[in-house]
Design a protein around this nucleic acid. Structure first.
Length: 481
RNA sequence: CGGGGUGUAGCGCAGCUGGUAGCGCGCUUGGUUUGGGACCAAGAUGCCGGGGGUUCAAGUCCUCUCACCCCGACCA
């Protein structure tokens, strides 16, 4: 970069190897996903970012409905007394709730918290509407935003207000609740892998890491490019703890009063952070076709020349007719500018059409991942594009899986563990005795936490990686977002 | 909540030992361009984060304050 002319040619994204955090920030800003707002810790989700969320919603919502769930909407405020009904739950959330103390000029007799999560509201409601076993199960979900007064924030990964979905269900038996917990964990896992092309580890949280008030918490964990883990979705089995605290009882077939068994599960806009950090590269965002707001962008070249724009629009229309999310950019920017712009935005497929192509009855197809130019006959364009989108979807998953595998290590003692965390961050598979003290020690020494006890167990050794006593389980460990 | 940093045009910044604000990008208009972020010309854009001081004079010095960012401790 010897002079200003060079500089303005490429509005560079910081390389992820140089500064991963800056790379991330560059992408969310330059791909027009978010803007910072005047409200501390709160982000503005811009149309392109929101379109991603809408696609996530559309997809998941359909899956929730297929599995028998209904959408509801709860108040955004929770009276203090209600929040305090379940002891562990309050303790878990109290440090980060925002309080409303005034209505207009008047001080409220009971302050209201802005929901950090809605268990208490659902429980309160369930205690009113559930009487008989005939009322069960209740399978509710809500799409909303919640507020947690976080001290440090980053777009999508941790913000004071964030969008999410929270499912809350009530069941007659412990078995049903457990089934539901796992069912929804699998819905999330399938969604991540098939739609977002993000491979996940399914497993259970240790007691230390489980949700405040839950009997058990299950999680899907994914691995980012910088070797940090992202908890991408959680599903909790509450047992009857909340039911006891809130008096949610029903009369069973034998006229006996019983407590319900409950679950809750959620994913948030954090998933978008995951998409960015799993698939993105130094040229910007990379979006899996199934979630991309724009799957194909058509760029006319020399568009002032006779027939070019007409052809470009015709291509757009024919692809749109096949159900492809396609956009044409007929602005008067240079073609090169447009190439870079849509690469930055992670659009999976670009089609170029210019006078030379029209002459040869072809278009130029370039995928975001390979950036290779392919000449496609216009006669088979639709088929080729659909084909390419499917191929890219699979490719991204495979690439992500390979990346995760390359960054997954095993450790049999603390020295090994520490060395890995320091030198080659990633997932560490290591044995654990089951004692929380060892979890604490590892966290103190390495800043890594137990990500989960995976369903798929392996035997790395017989002994706990920390204390050397007999091991109970193999855990995934790592530094997390 | 500890440590560090930054607030000057829409964005990124410069502005030294005080003298009344500038550069690049972007934006507007016109023209030439268009196959990897075009070029020329002419424009428009400022409560220098806020309050209070010092001074003949304050982006510049002092002081208080607010906000944001980064690194740690805590968290979807």
């Amino acid at each position: 970069m010897s002079n200003n002319k060079d500089k303005k040619m490429v509005e560079a994204i910081t390389s992820m190897d140089v500064d991963f955090a800056q790379w991330y920030t560059d992408i969310v800003k330059k791909a027009d996903l978010v803007d910072y707002s005047s409200v501390r810790g709160c982000m503005i989700i811009r149309p392109y970012g929101y379109a991603l969320w809408e696609n996530i919603q559309k997809n998941l919502d359909a899956k929730f409905k297929e599995t028998g769930h209904e959408n509801v909407y709860m108040p955004m405020f929770i009276p203090e007394s209600l929040l305090q009904k379940e002891k562990d739950h309050v303790e878990g959330f109290a440090p980060e709730v925002a309080w409303v103390t005034h209505g207009g000029q008047e001080e409220l007799t009971e302050k209201l918290c802005v929901r950090p999560t809605s268990e208490t509201l659902f429980c309160d409601h369930y205690s009113n509407i559930i009487q008989s076993y005939r009322d069960l199960p209740k399978l509710y979900n809500q799409w909303c935003s919640v507020v947690r007064w976080e001290k440090t924030t980053r777009p999508f990964l941790r913000t004071v207000e964030f969008l999410w979905q929270e499912g809350h269900t009530a069941h007659a038996t412990a078995e049903e609740a457990q089934e539901e917990t796992i069912r929804m964990l699998n819905v999330y896992a399938d969604f991540c892998e098939e739609v977002l092309a993000i491979p996940v580890i399914k497993g259970q949280k240790t007691d230390k890491e489980k949700f405040a008030g839950a009997k058990s918490t299950y999680t899907i964990e994914s691995l980012m490019h910088d070797g940090k883990a992202l908890q991408s979705g959680t599903s909790h089995n509450f047992g009857d703890g909340f039911a006891e605290a809130f008096g949610i009882q029903y009369t069973d077939q034998n006229n006996q009063l019983q407590y319900v068994h409950q679950t809750s599960w959620g994913v948030s806009t954090r998933l978008i952070g995951g998409i960015i950090m799993v698939h993105g590269d130094d040229n910007g965002l990379v979006l899996p076709p199934k979630i991309a707001p724009i799957q194909v962008v058509v760029i006319p070249v020399s568009q002032h020349k006779e027939g070019v724009l007409e052809k470009a629009y015709a291509i757009r229309d024919s692809l749109a007719a096949k159900g492809i999310r396609v956009k044409i950019d007929a602005s008067d920017k240079m073609p090169g500018w447009k190439y870079s712009e849509y690469e930055m935005k992670g659009v999976p497929v670009r089609l170029e059409i210019g006078p030379k192509d029209i002459e040869k009855n072809q278009a130029v197809l370039v995928t975001r991942v390979s950036r290779e130019k392919l000449f496609i006959s216009l006669d088979e364009l639709e088929v080729k594009v659909i084909d390419t989108l499917e191929k890219v979807q699979k490719e991204l998953y495979n690439k992500a899986l390979e990346m995760r595998n390359n960054k997954t290590y095993t450790a049999v003692n603390l020295e090994e563990f520490e060395k890995i965390i320091k030198e080659t961050p990633g997932f560490i598979k290591a044995m654990w005795c089951g004692d929380q003290k060892c979890e604490d020690t590892i966290k103190e020494k390495t800043a890594a936490t137990a990500r989960c006890i995976p369903f798929e167990q392996e035997k790395i050794s017989d002994k706990c990686v920390c204390c050397g006593k007999e091991a109970k389980n193999m855990l995934y460990w790592g530094k997390a977002y």
